[in-house]
């Protein structure tokens, strides 16, 4: 099973002809992802990386039956690209772009909420994220494919390289992943921890979840509440930023302790109180899952 993407996903890459889009689309294709089209306004009718390029997403959906979009367009145009994909009927939109203005994302959230209410649900992952991968089936993003292997641990994370670190440790300890989802490091994300935990809870092929959080906001606290009420599968968590000074943005736009909220201590406390195993030492993710979760994950 897996969640969000699999070998049937038909991907349109928005910003395919740009340097970043081009490079990563090639990597995705090499992994086996079915990239069926690209979109670059003004370059419709051409071909790039051996797939057709369209001027609009709706053309790509009609002509190439794309059902998933992967976005690499620059920050000033990213929100518009997301809305274009949503409007074209793409059910899953993954936005890799870093640096999208927060109010642009607020507008996107408002529109997606309206579409959802009108019965046209669109799931957005990101922005400012590494993407989503279902090992062995579909790599939709910028993560290195080779560190993953198919298996039954779900991974969800606000950070790119920390996800790679966690995945690599899991793989090295013999635990494959059902799907690894990077939800991104921005203050407003399309999809939060709670949404992804709900998907993993429902997925019969996921037996345990590793959740990588960081300081700032309250997504981890919300996840703790959700876990306590609705989840039967074990969750292991690591929270980055214990040493981060308050009031400073730690690289990610969303990683900031504001007015004493969003601290490492508060998150750890909420997760532990809910029954989630919190791993303090990043290097011990693999062995902690091995110790606690062997029978569940085997």
């Amino acid at each position: 099973m897996s969640i969000l993407v699999n070998s049937d996903s038909r991907v349109v890459v928005q910003g395919l002809t740009g340097a970043t889009g081009s490079f990563h689309a090639q990597q995705c294709m090499a992994y086996g992802t079915r990239v069926v089209a690209g979109v670059t306004p003004g370059k419709g009718g051409t071909r790039h990386l051996d797939v057709p390029v369209f001027d609009t997403v709706v053309d790509a959906v009609r002509a190439a039956c794309a059902n998933v979009s992967l976005i690499f367009v620059p920050p000033p145009f990213a929100a518009d690209a997301i809305l274009e994909a949503a409007d074209a009927g793409v059910a899953l939109v993954v936005c890799i772009t870093e640096g999208v203005p927060v109010l642009d994302m607020a507008r996107v959230r408002a529109r997606l909420r309206e579409m959802n209410a009108a019965g046209n649900p669109v799931r957005l992952i990101g922005p400012n994220c590494p993407g989503v991968i279902t090992p062995g089936q579909c790599k939709l993003g910028i993560m290195p494919g080779y560190i993953h292997k198919p298996g039954s641990v779900g991974v969800v994370s606000r950070s790119g390289t920390l996800t790679y670190e966690a995945v690599w440790q899991l793989t090295s300890h013999g635990f494959g992943q059902s799907t690894a989802v990077g939800i991104g490091g921005d203050p407003i994300a399309g999809t939060g921890f709670t949404d992804v935990l709900a998907l993993f809870e429902k997925d019969p092929e996921t037996n345990a979840v590793v959740m990588i959080g960081e300081i700032g906001g309250s997504a981890e606290e919300e996840a703790a509440r959700f876990f306590k009420k609705k989840m039967s599968k074990p969750v292991f968590s690591f929270i980055a930023g214990k040493m981060a000074p308050p009031g400073r943005r730690m690289g990610h736009a969303g990683a900031i302790i504001e007015g004493g909220s969003g601290t490492h201590a508060a998150k750890t406390q909420a997760l532990q109180a809910a029954g989630i195993t919190v791993i303090e030492n990043l290097s011990q993710i693999g062995e902690t899952v091995a110790k606690h979760g062997k029978e569940l994950v085997a």
Binding site: G160, T161, G185, E214, M243, M250
Partner: peptide
């Protein structure tokens, strides 16, 4: 010196640990 914001934060935390 680290690549990635999350890993950079976690590196600080590990140094302190």
């Amino acid at each position: 010196m680290v690549n990635g914001a999350g890993l950079a934060m976690a590196t600080m935390d590990t140094v302190s640990l």
